[in-house]
Design a protein around this nucleic acid. Structure first.
Length: 688
DNA sequence: CACCCAAACTTTTTT
DNA sequence: AGTTTGGGTG
């Protein structure tokens, strides 16, 4: 392993730029184009460390990362470097913490809560996760009568996606529909009405959804008094993964820090893969020109992760794309295993090949943890998971279904959220409908009643619910009242509420026994959070990525294979990487219609490829499932070769077939050999 | 008005 | 298969 304390010349330049900040010097911002594996995290960590060592107070550094995991890694490395530097200079070492480090969304929450009163927002606003938002939209579309139209109205999730696009790209409903949801173009007016009542409804309940966090922050940045305060609060602003920011995020940044002084953004346009979330590659491409003088640009090209054969593949793939900075990566590791394009017959063979190879590698001493299987879509690993389970190979899956999306987990979180914010209609609806005999109408009645008494839970004692619900209703109300009036310590609140919930669980779910296990786990987890507010917002903002994240610290020396969507694999690396279903329809994805979307798919494949240090296997099944049918039917199709595998790209790949011979070739080759063999043995039968 | 059942319909990736 | 809608029953 290379020494993380060493930096190459360009990395060092990036670290030193503007540190320490001098008057009238280095006024321009800095853009670091850091290709895959070029030591980006290390450079950022060094920069942060250098700032701290040179006397910048950690609370004057604003550090925005893409995911919590990346943040944690960065923080611990920066801390190590600070320790090392201070020790070297015989100075006293103290651990550093960076109070203003987090994702755009989590920083937005903090700033909004801090300035809530100044911008007419309740300090204790609730954050709606995607599921909550969709439920609210669903409620409203029924209320507005859009569910009973001659033609089917878009589903709640589609509505939310459209809304999200509008907010994050700051475009009108009509334009968003034209560009991305042309099949919904009939509904422009209805959707606009829906979104307007959605916004109103959130306001009534003092709730903000994910998009609002950015939107409100963006608007807050326009308020001069607040902008000045925040500008004065920070000397250095570091932003990671800048290629994945959208116009709102870029707007927040440039409005708060218009001169760009002390601003460093890091990213790689070749790894921009979040356009579906309205991320705009133009943000990073146009960044330098936003400022006068323009930003200094430093490109890191030396890759420390992979050997040159992998980089050749990545470089070739990207060179056939049409936009970007076109950075050619190189590595000092000249030799290694040539990346393989493995043709397999179908899903089953694909799984077989991977498992064979992974086990063989483990025999050679490469732990499971150092190997990963990546895929475009979460469900693509189904077959493999089945096989891994059958063969008792432990694995952890990142991306896809999350713990927090399980109905029972959402239920009990609703209970906590409702107690936290009585105006939260989504939470109350969800909960009340669990009572036997209570449906949407009754839930609405209860809510109106509560609103009439200024959201004092005590009033619910005088409300008469359906008889079937009575005993549980009373318990529930008692609990809610206690939560708001009695002094129950946060660490005991979830335990306290779980009593009523257990009964609700038993009535509503057949498999309540299994589900109860999850609730107990959640109670455990809640202990790690200092306050209820932090628990609710951090869990919604940064949900655990896999069930493994939840069980506290799993067995540390446990070895397991990593399965991950390409999106969730960002920033990580493994010795061996397997990429599933590299065929047209998946890479690129079939819905990537226009050129821009296609380019993003190319970058996505690039991200997957550049995760590998040594062994890289692209799997190409000949036969794969028709997308809409893949989960239940057994219709399959002979998939086309991925259009990214051009002749020049193919030259970077070693082609192999698994099982060893291609089916078509097998016919010819076996024909030559087998016939003589059979004759001999058949004749031999009669010999004496 | 709640609840159950049958029929129709499914567009990936995530803070 | 899961989700959503529509119709029928109590």
């Amino acid at each position: 392993m290379f020494d993380t304390l060493q930096l190459n010349q360009l990395q060092q330049e990036a670290v030193d730029f503007g540190v320490p900040a001098k008057e009238n010097q280095d006024l321009s911002p800095l853009l670091i184009i850091a290709g895959a594996g070029t030591g980006k995290t290390n450079t950022l960590a060094h920069k942060t460390a250098k700032l701290v060592v040179s006397g910048v107070s950690p609370d004057r550094i604003l550090l925005m990362t893409f995911a919590r995991r990346a943040a944690g890694e960065l923080a611990s490395r920066a801390s190590q470097i600070v320790e090392y530097t201070l020790r070297k200079n015989n100075k006293h070492y103290h651990a550093i913490t960076l109070p203003w480090m987090g994702t755009f969304h989590s920083i937005a929450v903090r700033l909004l809560r801090e300035h809530a009163l100044a911008i007419g927002l309740e300090e204790n606003f609730t954050i709606l996760d995607r599921g909550d938002s969709a439920d609210l939209i669903d409620l409203l579309r029924h209320e507005l009568g859009f569910s009973k139209t001659h033609k089917r109205f878009p589903k709640k999730k589609t509505c939310l996606d459209i809304y999200s696009r509008c907010v994050n790209s700051q475009k009108s409903v009509e334009i968003v529909l034209k560009e991305h949801f042309s099949y919904c173009l009939d509904w422009v007016e209805e959707l606009t009405t829906l979104f307007s009542s959605y916004a109103q409804s959130k306001a009534d309940q003092s709730c903000l959804d994910y998009d609002d966090l950015l939107l409100f922050c963006f608007h807050m940045a326009q308020v001069t008094e607040i902008a000045i305060k925040i500008r004065e609060q920070f000397d250095h602003i570091l932003v990671d993964e800048y290629q994945d920011t959208n116009v709102l995020q870029a707007g927040i940044l440039t409005t708060f820090f218009p001169t760009g002084k002390g601003l460093t953004v890091v990213g790689d346009d070749a790894q921009s893969i979040y356009a579906f979330r309205s991320a705009d590659v133009d943000n990073i491409l146009n960044f330098p020109q936003l400022f006068t003088p323009p930003a200094r640009v430093i490109s890191l090209k030396q890759n420390y992760r992979s050997h040159q054969l992998i980089l050749n593949l990545s470089n070739q793939l990207l060179s056939e794309g049409s936009e970007g900075y076109k950075v050619e990566l190189f590595s000092e590791k000249r030799h290694g295993n040539k990346p393989k394009l493995v043709t397999v017959e179908d899903d089953a063979k694909q799984a077989e090949y991977i498992i064979d190879n992974i086990l063989a590698s483990r025999e050679r001493g490469i732990e499971l943890k150092k190997q990963a299987v990546l895929f475009r879509t979460s469900s693509h690993s189904d077959r493999l998971e089945l096989e891994l389970t059958r063969r008792n190979i432990p694995y952890v899956k990142h991306g896809g279904l999350k713990f927090l999306e399980a109905a029972h987990v959402k239920d009990i979180l609703s209970l906590v959220s409702w107690a936290d914010n009585p105006k939260n209609k989504i939470a109350s609806f969800r909960l009340l409908k669990l009572l036997p005999g209570v449906g949407p109408k009754f839930a609405e009645k209860i809510n109106l009643y509560l609103a009439g008494y200024d959201y004092d839970f005590n009033c619910l004692k005088n409300f008469t619910p359906p008889e079937t619900a009575l005993p549980l209703y009373e318990k529930l109300v008692d609990n809610l009242v206690s939560m708001t009036t009695d002094q129950i310590k946060w660490s005991e609140q979830l335990q306290f509420l779980s009593g009523v919930y257990k009964e609700l669980l038993e009535i509503n779910y057949d498999d309540h026994f299994v589900r109860w296990g999850d609730i107990e786990q959640l109670i455990q987890i809640s202990q790690q959070f200092p306050t209820r507010e932090r628990f609710i917002s951090e869990l919604t903002l940064d949900p655990p990525q896999s069930s493994g994240d939840l069980s506290g610290t799993p067995v540390i020396d446990d070895d397991f294979l990593i399965l991950s969507t390409v999106h969730s694999a960002k920033g990580q690396e493994w010795q061996n990487v397997f990429i599933l279903n590299v065929a047209d329809g998946n890479f690129p994805n079939e819905y990537a219609a226009d050129n821009r979307a296609l380019e993003e798919e190319r970058r996505l494949l690039n991200v997957a490829i550049t995760r590998a240090k040594d062994g890289l296997h692209l799997l190409q099944p000949l036969k794969y499932w028709v997308p809409e049918q893949q989960r239940w039917g057994d219709r399959h199709v002979y998939g086309g070769k991925s259009r990214f595998l051009s002749d020049d790209v193919m030259k970077c790949l070693e082609q192999i077939h698994y099982p060893k011979i291609h089916p078509n070739q097998r016919e010819k080759e076996s024909a030559k050999v087998a016939i003589t063999d059979i004759r001999k043995s058949v004749l031999g039968m009669w010999k004496n």
